[in-house]
Amino acid sequence: MGFKLLSKLLVYLTASIMAIASPLAFSVDSSGEYPTVSEIPVGEVRLYQIADGVWSHIATQSFDGAVYPSNGLIVRDGDELLLIDTAWGAKNTAALLAEIEKQIGLPVTRAVSTHFHDDRVGGVDVLRAAGVATYASPSTRRLAEVEGNEIPTHSLEGLSSSGDAVRFGPVELFYPGAAHSTDNLIVYVPSASVLYGGCAIYELSRTSAGNVADADLAEWPTSIERIQQHYPEAQFVIPGHGLPGGLDLLKHTTNVVKAHTNRSVVE
């Protein structure tokens, strides 16, 4: 069995187990497998329904001669939608809004960016022009300005110390501490036991640490421990890039980060 097929099978099995364990909360999309990078042309966006009122959005972007996937989250909030992270750029984010209108038909009224990198804030200006209120932590807003990236308009308070959590509509926002970046936030959907790890969490097929220019490698494993301790009931975990899975993604990420750190020390 090929690795790609095995990865998709694991996603399907995880979703099936969740649907059985929580039949009222989960209505997993039966329309197909989780979209992969090879299936999404740059400039297009796919939506994948995880649970009743919960979707991931998947886009792709060219970077350094390669094409990478990027995940975000959409959560229903009454007759409105909360968006977590842009679709990595203005063109993708405009396509995301169009796809949401086509498939869901509810307005996106608020959006949260989970850290300051372009795959999370690139497209904020498109959201703002569409009347979406954009939010991020003060740290993310400051770092985005320093980096020359787009800056969300509103500040999220109460997320300055490791372990801080605040309720934001249908989700809980959690600051686990520094990891992929010093400002990275985690998003949890309690009604569906869905954990969105953003770039602080890796997919299972990833074996290298990737972009760690703004990471705190020493603190990252401790931050992941905080996530595990705060959300032990999480059933569906979405990484910032690639295929979702279960809580095993947290341990896998820790292993990859520690291996990278150990290699760096040896070198």
Rank of each mutant, 00 (worst) to 15 (best):
D248M: 08
A95L: 15
E172H: 05
P221L: 11
L73R: 01
L204I: 13
R141I: 11
R141W: 03
L173E: 02
V28A: 13
G89K: 03
R206W: 10
D64I: 08
G105C: 06
L249D: 01
E39F: 10
T86H: 01
V45S: 06
F174E: 00
K102C: 08
G158I: 03
N262K: 11
I104C: 00
S137Y: 02
A178V: 07
R141K: 14
K258I: 10
T207I: 11
T60G: 09
E225V: 11
G65C: 04
A192P: 06
K91T: 14
L96Y: 01
L10N: 15
V28K: 08
S264P: 13
P244V: 06
D64V: 08
T253I: 07
L97P: 04
S223Q: 02
L97N: 01
T14N: 08
V166W: 05
I151L: 08
G169A: 06
D85N: 04
L127G: 01
L96G: 02
S193K: 14
R206N: 15
G163D: 06
V126C: 03
S139L: 13
A94S: 14
P221I: 11
G177F: 02
S208G: 10
S16W: 15
L247D: 08
G43M: 04
G246F: 02
T134C: 03
K91S: 15
I227R: 01
E145Q: 13
S22A: 12
P138N: 09
G148A: 07
I104T: 05
A192C: 04
S193R: 14
V265L: 12
A51H: 07
L195E: 00
V189D: 04
L83R: 02
S181R: 02
I151R: 04
S155I: 13
E44M: 12
S181I: 00
S208C: 06
H252C: 00
K8T: 15
A94R: 14
K91F: 08
S70I: 03
D85T: 00
Q49S: 11
D183H: 05
V257C: 04
T207H: 14
E219T: 09
S155P: 13
V237Q: 00
I201C: 02
L217M: 11
T207V: 13
V187A: 12
I104D: 01
A66R: 12
E99H: 14
I20T: 12
F116P: 01
T36D: 15
V28H: 14
G245K: 00
G32V: 11
T93F: 02
V75F: 03
H180W: 01
A98F: 12
L159P: 07
V166A: 08
A25T: 13
N211L: 09
G105D: 10
D85V: 01
D52G: 10
Q235K: 10
K258N: 11
K251F: 10
T36H: 12
A213Q: 13
S16G: 15
R76M: 11
A200D: 03
I84E: 00
G198V: 05
Q228R: 12
S31V: 11
D164S: 14
W220N: 03
K8E: 14
G32T: 09
S30Y: 11
T36F: 11
L250W: 01
V126D: 05
H180F: 01
A215Q: 06
G123A: 03
S191L: 08
E44Q: 12
E233Q: 13
I100H: 02
T254W: 14
E99D: 08
E172K: 05
D216L: 06
Y175E: 00
Q229I: 11
I100G: 02
V67G: 12
V124R: 01
S38T: 10
S223W: 00
Q49C: 08
I224N: 05
A15N: 11
T140P: 03
G43Y: 07
S7F: 12
T261H: 15
T109K: 14
N211M: 10
H180V: 00
D214P: 06
A215L: 04
N211C: 04
V166Y: 08
F116C: 04
F3P: 06
F26D: 15
G158R: 07
L5G: 09
P152S: 05
S191D: 12
L159M: 06
S205H: 09
V112N: 02
I151N: 08
F168G: 01
P221C: 05
S27M: 12
V189K: 00
E172V: 04
S27K: 11
I100Q: 04
W55Q: 01
P244G: 04
E172L: 03
G72R: 02
I227Y: 02
D119W: 00
L97Y: 01
L5A: 14
A144N: 03
W88I: 00
I104Q: 01
V166E: 07
L247R: 15
F116Q: 03
S193I: 06
E203P: 06
N262G: 12
R226W: 07
G78A: 09
D125V: 06
T86N: 02
S205N: 10
G158T: 06
H241F: 00
E150V: 04
F63D: 14
H154A: 06
N149C: 06
K258G: 11
H117V: 00
L249Q: 00
V257E: 03
R226P: 04
V146E: 14
K102A: 13
K91C: 07
E172I: 04
E44T: 13
A25L: 12
P152G: 02
G245M: 02
V166L: 12
Y196R: 02
C199D: 01
Q235M: 09
E267R: 11
R141L: 09
E145D: 11
S139Y: 11
V126R: 06
P138K: 09
K91V: 15
G2E: 15
A215C: 05
E39W: 09
I104S: 01
A129D: 13
K8H: 07
D77K: 05
T261Y: 11
L97I: 07
G245S: 06
A66W: 07
L10E: 13
T182G: 10
K102Q: 11
H230V: 09
A215F: 03
G242A: 04
E39R: 12
S70Y: 04
V256I: 12
T253F: 02
F63Y: 08
T109Q: 10
V194H: 04
A200S: 06
L24P: 13
I74Q: 01
D64M: 09
Y68C: 06
A87C: 00
D29S: 10
R226F: 04
T36N: 15
P35T: 08
V187F: 03
A234M: 06
